[in-house]
Design a protein around this nucleic acid. Structure first.
Lengths: 169, 169
DNA sequence: CGATATTTGATATGGTCCATAACAATTATC
DNA sequence: GATAATTGTTATGGACCATATCAAATATCG
């Protein structure tokens, strides 16, 4: 609990803050924080997810669920372990996720005839229809904002740089 | 549990996958996923945080703790509510965080003489020293990798685009 | 002034996501 | 054919996030 003298001085210097000048609430200085990669990356990610959820409110799809549907559509006939691992989801945590998608009739587990341990994942007809609508919503309401904000060229550059970080950092 | 006919067909078509060609394990196709802003953002963020934690292992500082120390240093004499809210941390969740930093003698709460409700936050001498070392580690081991990976100009452009997203999306 | 409302830090609590251990059924290996 | 490895699953605990609530202190306003 040792407080330095300079710390005490700072506290005293603060005594007069509120009374000194009664201007605006004095926003804090971010300082070096605004140059920290992790900080700005996290904040951007939160904003993007938040916007994604708003755009998908009518379909009730989270970013993670959307990624599962996309991956299953692109790779039909793969089992849970394969889909989960390429998404960075641990197998135990993938179970409840699939239970959810399956209960909504978007996705189905099918016992493989090759290996009766594994469950083959497939989109249902409803799942395909929902995914089609989801893609349109994402394209028109979500990803389009990136172009408005950054421009098409910058948007492509951003995605490429993020991919590079995700793969090579 | 209605499985479409095409879904069943996909399942059957899969029966022969493993036996068809015994080449490599056949990596999955990411498809449109690699163009999804949210997906690549999240993955990049995870990698960056992971690397940050490795770089800071000797100081045992998480990204969130580092951001708190940075903000308190830049804005001495502010109270918990101010520091927490500008970091997007809810006041209840900020209490345990400060308990941790204070127990390690990195940060101190001081009763304000103006408003005896609020706690003024200040870095201790040890906190300042640790933060100085942390900044050096981040600069040399963490942020430097960005320059290696993207180049200085692209790095600056990336940070700026992410800030724009964080603030205007 | 004094009653009421607001603010601050704190506690309790619940939800979601993430990680590990363990298990039964099935398959691979030797 | 005995042993090892894999698949989906359950149970469980930790980290993070959000809401409601509280006591103490302060602000507001009649």
């Amino acid at each position: 609990m040792t407080v330095s003298k300079s710390a005490e001085k700072s506290a005293e210097a603060t005594k007069g803050r509120k009374d000194a000048t009664d201007g605006p609430p004095e926003a804090l200085q971010l300082g070096e924080l605004s140059e920290q990669l992790g900080y700005v990356l996290k904040r951007a990610q939160l904003k993007v997810f938040e916007n994604f959820l708003r755009c998908m409110a009518s379909l009730q799809l989270t970013p993670a669920q959307f990624s599962v549907l996309l991956l299953v559509e692109k790779n039909p006939g793969r089992n849970q372990t394969e889909i989960a691992s390429t998404l960075g989801i641990l197998r135990p945590n993938f179970v409840a996720m699939l239970d959810n998608l399956e209960s909504r009739d978007l996705c189905a587990r099918i016992r493989s005839t090759n290996d009766r341990r594994s469950h083959i994942l497939v989109l249902t007809d409803k799942g395909k229809a929902v995914l089609t609508r989801a893609k349109k919503l994402v394209a028109t309401k979500h990803e389009s904002r990136l172009n408005e904000l950054l421009g098409s060229a910058n948007r492509a550059a951003l995605i490429e740089m993020l991919s590079k970080i995700a793969n090579e950092f």
